[in-house]
């Protein structure tokens, strides 16, 4: 049985100060008093530039909450988050909004696109919101790599689930964000479309040096990542580098035990 490479959480944070995203002492508590739920109970983690990282853990481990806090979608109860050199927890709402649309890309599990806009408009939406024009060469490049050239005029309900998710990836990649967060990007897809989407995320990391952080509960999806960060009960519970589906499954089983 292959032994996962375990490291002690937090020790690496200093050496990774050049990380794309990192968090220190991150806590998120819902409710108060005796009924308080600690979704994150003090997490220190860092994600290197140009790396594809998967966050994994059992249901309720806090993996989605961690991603929301890292992406500036949700405010942490305590602790700090840095995107590059920018400290997120001290930003005001509109500063966070501007940061999201310029430096962070999102791919969600479902309801990823605005139903009233055709694919092309959905892709350029964050840049338009920021008042920027996309680089046409880069746009063509992204659209070609995602195989969307024929689909740009279609509205979301005219696209398959896999196509919709590819439009979402194109939208996430277009502004060349510091990091792309993907939340269960294959959760609603059949296995073939899922593999296609993961392959595209993988290749964007390989070919353009994009940093990608993905939350998933699917070991075979995590196997596409360079590194897997394991979470349990709101705490970091170890990590794996160069994971395979089998090694991830084993690590998860160890967590459950």
């Amino acid at each position: 049985m292959p032994v996962p490479v375990m490291t002690v959480p937090g020790e690496q944070s200093e050496s990774l100060s050049g990380a794309a995203v990192r968090a220190a002492g991150l806590r998120k508590t819902y409710g108060g008093g005796e009924t308080a739920v600690h979704a994150l109970a003090g997490v220190d983690v860092a994600f290197a530039r140009g790396e594809f990282t998967a966050i994994m853990g059992p249901s309720g481990s806090g993996k989605s909450t961690l991603m929301h806090c890292l992406a500036g979608l949700d405010a942490a109860t305590a602790g700090q988050v840095w995107l590059g050199d920018t400290e997120l927890t001290s930003l005001r709402d509109d500063q966070l909004t501007a940061l999201r649309r310029q430096r962070i890309g999102f791919v969600f599990q479902a309801f990823n696109l605005l139903p009233v806009l055709p694919a092309r408009e959905n892709i350029v939406l964050p840049m338009q919101l920021a008042g920027q024009r996309p680089d046409p060469v880069w746009f063509d490049d992204v659209v070609a790599r995602l195989g969307l050239r024929e689909r740009l005029g279609h509205r979301p309900h005219e696209l398959s689930g896999g196509q919709q998710q590819r439009v979402a990836i194109a939208r996430a990649l277009l502004p060349r964000p510091d990091v792309v967060f993907a939340d269960e990007p294959t959760g609603n897809l059949d296995s073939r479309s899922g593999a296609e989407v993961l392959g595209l995320l993988r290749s964007s990391v390989k070919e353009t040096g994009q940093t990608v952080v993905m939350v998933t509960h699917d070991p075979s999806a995590a196997a596409y990542a360079d590194r897997v960060v394991l979470l349990a009960d709101g705490r970091l519970a170890g990590e794996l580098t160069d994971p395979t589906a089998a090694s991830v499954l084993d690590a998860l089983r160890d967590l459950g035990a």
Binding site: A71, D93, T97, R100, F111, L114
Partner: peptide, 16 residues
């Protein structure tokens, strides 16, 4: 609600 959340996530300010 979900859609507005998406817009906010993608960078639509409250004013917008």
């Amino acid at each position: 609600r979900q859609e507005n959340g998406l817009l906010r996530a993608l960078g639509l300010t409250r004013t917008q």
